[in-house]
Each structure stands twice: as C-alpha cells, then as structure tokens.
Write a protein that binds this DNA or RNA. Structure first.
Length: 265
DNA sequence: CGATAGTCTTAGTTTACATCA
DNA sequence: TGTGATGTAAACTAAGACTAT
C-alpha cells in the first residue's frame, strides 16, 4: 500500500488531520530553543528548507561572538590540532559582515586537485579534534559567514574552503537523516490508515448484512439505527423508505461512535 | 528598471580511504 | 596476507537564488 492508496481510502481526511496536527506541531517549534542536532520530525513533502534556511542564517549572524569563544575554549583544551591541508589555493578577498574586507583563501576547484608536486590530491581525513570542533560549531549554527569560516579554518589549520565543504556535507547528511525519519513517520501513518480502512470496511459489511436481514424480516426502518455500542434504538425514522433513512443515519451516527461510543448516544 | 557579476546554497556526483568478509 | 566489495566522507560541479552595482 503506497501513499496513493491513502487517498483512495476515502478516510484520509479525518486521519490526515491527525497527521497534519502532528506536523503543525513539529513545524512550529519554539525556534529560539531549537538545536540543530535535534531535528524535529516533519511530514512535509514539499521543499521546506527555505524557512529553515532563513532561520539558520539569522542564527549564524547572531551567535557569531559566542562561536569564537566556544572554539577558543575548545582549542585551548587540545594539545594539538593536526595540519591537514594538502592542496594549493589562490588568494582572494571576500567581504566580511560589516563590509570590511578579510583576506581569505579561496580555492578553485581544479587547483585543489593537486599538491605542490602536481600529484593527484590526497584525501583529507579530519582528526577527531577537528571533527569535534566542527560539530560543536555546527550545533551552534549550520551555516557560516566568511569571518566565522576564516576563524574556524585558522583554528583548525584547515583552508576556509575545507571548512566550507565540511559544512555543506554536514548539512546534506543532516537532511538525509531527517528524510529517513520523515519516511518512517509516513510509513507508520500509512499503516494506521490501512488498519482503519480495514476496520471500517468490516463494519460496513456488517451493517450491510444487518440491513438486508432487516429488509427480509420486514422490520421497521427505525430498528436499523440501533447503536451497536449502547444498544439504544433511534426512533426518529419514519415512513417506508427504510434504505434512505438508514443511509443518512449511518453516516451521521455510526462513523465516530466506534471510537467514542458514549459521545454518540 | 533591467543587466551583470559575485556569492552562497543545494543536489548530485566523484574519489580516496577504511573496513570487512 | 592479499583482494574485492562496500560504506563513508571529503571534494567537486552545476544550477538556482539573492544581492550589490
């Protein structure tokens, strides 16, 4: 049973609201307390990164000062940060937040493929310390402004380009993980709907057989509106048109009462 | 107000390295 | 111990959005 089948159940609206409520709660977190490593489940199928993107952009500007402190503290506790750069780079000037220019290393793709000897690039493996500091930084904000990038690169003995790439890949991994979580939620939602659909089909069959029995026994139509939960009989129906009376009452009376029988009576 | 260049991000891909059967 | 398959992560590319000039 796929997602398309959910729409075919004819029941997805009611249960879908449950999902939407859940989604709404997930998508409206208290943003100021949201941690980047605690991603909230979401059933959103559309592109949802725009809101998140604008949020993290704001966040990265806001906490810049704290970030530097955090990293300085962390680095001071480490005995050694390995030097892990392999490739050449060209130098370019990038504008900082305030418009002042900061000299940054700028790596152009093909240049970085070769080291000084012109041999093919060696693949960098970040040390544990480097990874830990990058993770800490990512928890603070998952994007970097040029100044933050430069500071982090200096602290880690990496090129700014390497820091930038690490953040790009880290964001991609986070997104992938979140997709997996979303997928699991959708699966569970689908299973729930399938069960509900089966149950309702079964009830429908029972009601249909009850109706046929009543017709052949020539019982009054009002008998058919008896609630199966509380056994009360609704006397409101009148006239010989047993089937139409029953149909209308079935929809209004029997749909929710199975989950909340007392509320129906 | 439209054109252009520069920057940044994402999605997808390639590639080097580590691990395991 | 050597080797191929596989997974992971660093690095790259292309395209689109946005902004400043």
């Amino acid at each position: 049973m796929g997602i398309d089948d959910i729409h075919n159940t004819g029941l997805c609206l009611g249960l879908g609201i449950g999902c939407l409520v859940m989604q709404e709660n997930f998508l409206q977190p208290n943003k100021s307390s949201l941690k980047h490593d605690q991603f909230l489940p979401s059933l959103s199928l559309g592109p949802s990164h725009d809101m998140h993107r604008s949020f993290v952009k704001f966040d990265s500007w806001k906490v810049h000062g704290e970030l530097v402190d955090l990293h300085q503290r962390r680095a001071s506790s480490l005995s050694l940060i390995e030097v892990s750069s392999f490739s050449n780079s060209s130098v370019k000037r990038e504008r900082d937040l305030g418009g002042e220019e900061v000299e940054l290393e700028r790596v152009h793709s093909r240049v970085s493929d070769e080291d000084e000897e012109g041999s093919p690039r060696k693949k960098l493996r970040l040390s544990r310390e480097q990874s830990a500091i990058l993770e800490d930084s990512f928890k603070e904000h998952n994007t970097l402004n040029p100044k933050q990038k430069q500071d982090l690169a200096e602290q880690l003995n990496l090129r700014p380009r390497q820091v930038e790439v690490w953040f790009q890949n880290r964001r991609a991994r986070t997104k992938l993980k979140q997709s997996e979580v979303d997928c699991e939620l959708l699966k569970k939602c689908c299973e729930t709907l399938t069960e509900e659909n089966k149950r309702l089909h079964k009830e429908l069959q029972e009601l249909k057989s009850l109706k046929v029995t009543a017709y052949y026994m020539q019982l009054p139509a009002t008998t058919l509106t008896m609630c199966p939960s509380c056994k009360k009989v609704d006397n409101g129906g009148e006239g010989p048109s047993a089937s139409s009376t029953f149909t209308i009452r079935q929809k209004s009376h029997f749909f929710t009462p199975f989950t909340h029988p007392s509320a129906a009576c």
